[in-house]
């Protein structure tokens, strides 16, 4: 459709109440933190929680919660963008970067070009490794200085803030490095394979 229809009598809020260069097309700012997920929130106890890295079907490393907490911690202040059109600016996260996880495995570079992140509840999401390294992503365990609440993905969620927020998979328990890019849970249900908010890649084919 080339010319969008004018909606008579619609004026909107006009300028988002914030810096426009930080709000991607089709997004609007919120001050609260909406929740989107497909099923019951998993309630994984820290005693049984673990995090694994795998490559080519082989285990690279597994951490218990205590071991994971002992890894180098990084803080990120960043904007987040949900595919359901809300954006939230200047959110504060803390966790372990993917770079530090790789380093803890003794790897100087990632073992494969793609990953599938795996989560409690059976969710997965796929990403190119490029989007995870060099400080671009972390396994976040704190939000605004507090332990991450279960409904927001706690105890730990992937945080890849430059992509739509479904890529920041909640309740993450492991990352598999893979040779190919295969769609995860939402991607197989019609969401975009990559999900760049600045190119408005919401759904397949966008």
């Amino acid at each position: 459709m080339s010319e969008p229809p004018i909606s008579r009598g619609f004026h909107g809020r006009k300028k988002p109440e914030g810096p426009t260069n930080r709000v991607p097309p089709g997004q609007h700012l919120v001050s609260d933190f909406p929740v989107l997920s497909a099923g019951p929130t998993p309630q994984t106890k820290l005693e049984v929680w673990s995090f694994t890295l795998e490559a080519g079907g082989k285990l690279l490393k597994e951490w218990s919660w205590a071991e994971f907490e002992a890894l180098p911690q990084t803080k990120i202040k960043t904007d987040i963008h949900c595919v359901t059109t809300w954006s939230k600016l200047g959110t504060n996260w803390q966790g372990v970067t993917i770079d530090d996880l790789l380093a803890a495995c003794g790897l100087s570079e990632p073992p494969a070009p793609y990953v599938l992140a795996e989560c409690d509840g059976g969710y997965t999401t796929n990403l190119p490794v490029e989007d995870l390294i060099e400080g671009k992503a972390m396994i976040a365990t704190r939000y605004e200085g507090q332990p991450l609440e279960p409904e927001h993905g706690g105890p730990a969620r992937l945080l890849v803030p430059h992509l739509y927020f479904w890529k920041s998979a909640k309740w993450v328990r492991g990352i598999q490095f893979r040779e190919g890019d295969e769609p995860g849970f939402w991607e197989a249900l019609g969401y975009h394979i990559y999900g760049d908010p600045w190119r408005e890649q919401r759904y397949a084919g966008d």
């Binding site: 919120v30 909406p34 989107l36 099923g39 019951p40």
Partner: peptide, 23 residues
């Protein structure tokens, strides 16, 4: 509701949720 359903023995895989509003 989703948590109560799990407590009542319903299978996680049979419970689908959609949320409209903010927290």
């Amino acid at each position: 509701v989703a948590l109560s359903l799990l407590e009542l023995g319903h299978e996680r895989g049979l419970i689908k949720t959609e949320r409209f509003g903010p927290t």
